[in-house]
Amino acid sequence: VTLFVALYDYEARTEDDLSAHKGEKFQILNSSEGDWWEARSLTTGETGYIPSNYVAPV
């Protein structure tokens, strides 16, 4: 399991995006899409895309 933590708040801009709150942890499901990674929030269980530069490894 690849875990990352949000460094900043991010507000989803499309229905495919996933909002993130600073300190929230995510499981990365797919990081092969360049700057946008598919992730699952460990807080809400929701999945979507987050900007890779907004997260760091735990």
Score class of each variant (00 low, 15 high):
Glu46Trp: 07
Leu42Pro: 01
Leu18Val: 07
Asp17Asn: 09
Glu33Gln: 14
Asp9Asn: 08
Trp37Cys: 05
Ser31Leu: 10
Gly23Ser: 02
Lys22Glu: 07
Leu18Trp: 02
Asp35Ala: 10
Asp17Ile: 08
Asp17His: 15
Tyr49Thr: 06
Ala20Phe: 15
Ile50Ser: 02
Glu24Met: 04
Thr43Gly: 06
Ala6Pro: 00
Trp36Asn: 06
Tyr54Trp: 08
Ala20Asn: 01
Glu15Asp: 12
Glu38Gln: 13
Lys22Trp: 05
Thr47Lys: 09
Val55Asn: 01
Val1Lys: 11
Leu18Ala: 01
Val58Phe: 12
Ile50Pro: 01
Tyr8Pro: 00
Ser32Phe: 10
Asp35Lys: 08
Leu7Asp: 00
Thr2Ala: 11
Thr47Ile: 14
Thr47Asn: 04
Val58Glu: 08
Ser32His: 11
Asn30Lys: 09
Ser19His: 09
Asp9Leu: 06
Thr43Arg: 13
Val58Thr: 07
Ser41Arg: 10
Pro57Gln: 08
Gly45Glu: 04
Leu7Phe: 03
Ser52Leu: 05
Gly45Val: 02
Pro57Ser: 06
Thr14Cys: 15
Ser52Arg: 13
Arg13Ala: 11
Leu7Cys: 11
Ile28Glu: 00
Asn53Tyr: 12
Arg40Thr: 10
Leu18Gly: 01
Ala39Trp: 05
Asp16Asn: 15
Pro57Ala: 09
Leu18Ser: 01
Val58Arg: 00
Glu33His: 14
Gly45Thr: 02
Ala56Val: 13
Leu42Ser: 03
Val55Phe: 14
Thr44Ser: 10
Gly34Leu: 10
Leu42Gln: 06
Ser41Asp: 02
Tyr54Met: 15
Pro51Leu: 07
Leu29Met: 07
Lys25Arg: 12
Asp16His: 15
Pro57His: 05
Pro51Val: 03
Tyr54Asn: 07
Arg40Gly: 02
Leu7Glu: 03
Leu29Ala: 05
Gly45Ser: 05
Phe26Asn: 00
Gly34Val: 10
Tyr49His: 07
Lys22Asp: 01
Gly48Lys: 02
Ala56Asn: 04
Ser32Asp: 10
Thr44His: 03
Glu15Arg: 11
Lys25Thr: 12
Gln27His: 11
Leu18Lys: 00
Thr2Tyr: 12
Trp36Gln: 07
Ile28Trp: 03
Ser19Asp: 08
Tyr54Leu: 15
Phe26Cys: 03
Phe26Leu: 08
Asp16Val: 13
Glu24Asn: 03
Gly34Asn: 11
Gly34Phe: 08
Trp37Pro: 01
Leu29His: 04
Ala6Asp: 00
Ala56Ser: 09
Thr44Leu: 02
Tyr8Val: 07
Leu18Cys: 05
Phe26Pro: 00
Asn53Asp: 09
Phe4Met: 08
Val55Gln: 01
Thr44Met: 02
Phe26Glu: 00
Ile50Arg: 00
Ala20Met: 15
Val5Ala: 05
Leu42Ile: 10
His21Val: 13
Glu33Asp: 15
Ala6Leu: 06
Val55Cys: 06
His21Gln: 11
Thr2Leu: 13
Ala6Ser: 05
Asp16Gly: 15
Trp37Ile: 07
His21Thr: 13
Ser32Arg: 11
Asp9Val: 05
Ala56Tyr: 08
Ile50Asp: 02
Thr43Phe: 10
Glu38Met: 15
Gly48Thr: 05
Phe26Ser: 00
Ile28Ala: 01
Ser31Ala: 13
Gly23Cys: 08
Glu24Pro: 01
Val5Pro: 00
Leu7Arg: 01
Gly48Asp: 01
Leu18Arg: 01
Leu18Pro: 01
Arg13Asp: 06
Glu11Ser: 10
Arg13Val: 12
Tyr54Pro: 00
Ala39His: 01
Tyr8Glu: 08
Asp9Cys: 10
Tyr8Leu: 08
Leu42Asn: 04
Ala56Met: 10
Gly34Gln: 12
Leu3Ala: 05
Leu29Trp: 06
Tyr10Val: 06
Glu24Tyr: 04
Glu38Leu: 15
Pro57Phe: 07
His21Glu: 08
Leu42Glu: 07
Val5Thr: 04
Tyr49Arg: 14
Leu18Glu: 00
Gly48Arg: 02
Ile50Glu: 01
Lys22Asn: 04
Val58Ala: 09
Phe4Asp: 00
Glu38Val: 15
Ala12Gln: 06
Val5Glu: 08
Tyr49Trp: 15
Trp37Leu: 10
Thr44Arg: 04
Leu3Thr: 09
Thr44Gln: 02
Tyr8His: 07
Glu33Cys: 15
Val5Leu: 05
Gln27Thr: 10
Asn30Tyr: 08
Ala39Gly: 04
Leu42Trp: 07
Ser32Gly: 11
Val1Gly: 13
Tyr8Arg: 09
Trp37Asp: 01
Ser19Val: 06
Gly48Asn: 01
Glu38Ser: 07
Thr2His: 11
Leu3Phe: 12
Ala20Ile: 15
Trp36Cys: 12
Thr43Lys: 10
Val55Ile: 13
Asp16Trp: 15
Ile28Thr: 01
Leu7His: 02
Ser41Ala: 04
Val58Lys: 02
Ser32Met: 12
Glu46Gln: 14
Glu11Met: 11
Glu11Leu: 10
Ala56Arg: 09
Val5Ile: 12
Thr47Asp: 03
Ala39Arg: 01
Leu18His: 02
Thr2Val: 13
Ser31Gln: 13
Leu42His: 04
Arg40Ser: 03
Ala56Ile: 12
Gly48Phe: 05
Ala20Glu: 02
Ser52Asp: 01
Phe4Pro: 00
Ala6Trp: 04
Gln27Ser: 07
Val5Arg: 03
Ser52Gly: 07
Ala39Phe: 14
Thr43Met: 10
Trp37Lys: 01
Tyr10Gln: 00
Gly48Tyr: 05
Gly45Tyr: 06
Ser52Gln: 07
Pro57Ile: 08
Leu18Asp: 00
Ser41Asn: 10
Glu33Arg: 15
Tyr8Phe: 12
His21Phe: 15
Glu15Ile: 11
Pro57Glu: 08
Trp36Glu: 04
Tyr10Ile: 12
Tyr10Asp: 00
Glu15Asn: 12
Pro57Asn: 05
Glu46Cys: 14
Pro51Gly: 04
Phe4Trp: 14
Tyr49Pro: 02
Gly48Val: 04
Gln27Asn: 06
Thr47Pro: 00
Ile28Asp: 00
Gly48Ala: 02
Thr44Asp: 02
Leu3Arg: 04
Phe4Thr: 03
Tyr49Ser: 05
Tyr49Phe: 12
Gly23Asp: 05
Thr47Ser: 09
Thr44Val: 00
Lys25Leu: 15
Glu15Cys: 14
Arg13Phe: 07
Asn53Glu: 10
His21Ala: 10
Arg13Asn: 08
Ala20Ser: 05
Thr47Phe: 07
Lys25Met: 15
Arg13Ser: 10
Ile28Arg: 02
Thr44Glu: 03
Leu3Tyr: 13
Ala20Gln: 02
Arg40Val: 09
Glu24Leu: 04
Tyr49Cys: 12
Gly23Leu: 03
Gly48Ser: 01
Ser41Val: 02
Asp17Ala: 14
Glu46Arg: 15
Asn30Leu: 07
Gly48Met: 03
Glu24Ile: 03
Gln27Pro: 00
Gly45Pro: 00
Pro57Val: 08
Tyr10Cys: 05
Thr2Trp: 13
Val1Gln: 13
Trp37Arg: 01
Glu38Ala: 07
Gly34Thr: 11
Tyr54His: 08
Glu15Ser: 13
Asp9Gln: 06
Lys25Ser: 05
Tyr49Met: 13
Val5Asp: 00
Thr47Arg: 11
Glu24Ala: 02
Ala56Gly: 08
Glu11Phe: 11
Asn53Met: 12
Pro51Asp: 05
Val1Thr: 12
Val58Asn: 04
Ala56Pro: 01
Leu42Lys: 03
Leu29Thr: 05
Asp9Phe: 07
Ala56Cys: 12
Glu11Trp: 10
Ser19Tyr: 06
Ser31Thr: 13
Ser19Leu: 03
Thr14Lys: 13
Asp35Thr: 10
Ile28Asn: 00
Glu33Gly: 13
Glu46Tyr: 09
Ser31Tyr: 12
Glu11Cys: 14
Trp36Tyr: 13
Val5Phe: 10
Arg13Ile: 10
His21Pro: 02
Thr43Ala: 11
Glu38Arg: 13
Arg40Trp: 06
Asp16Arg: 15
Ser41Leu: 03
Glu38Trp: 15
Ser52Glu: 02
Leu7Ser: 01
Gln27Cys: 14
Ala56Asp: 03
Trp36Ala: 06
Thr44Tyr: 03
Pro57Met: 09
Ala39Leu: 09
Leu3Asp: 05
Glu46Gly: 07
Glu24Lys: 02
Phe4Cys: 09
Lys22Ala: 11
Asn30Gln: 08
Thr44Asn: 05
Ala39Asp: 01
Arg40Phe: 08
Ile50Lys: 02
Leu3Trp: 10
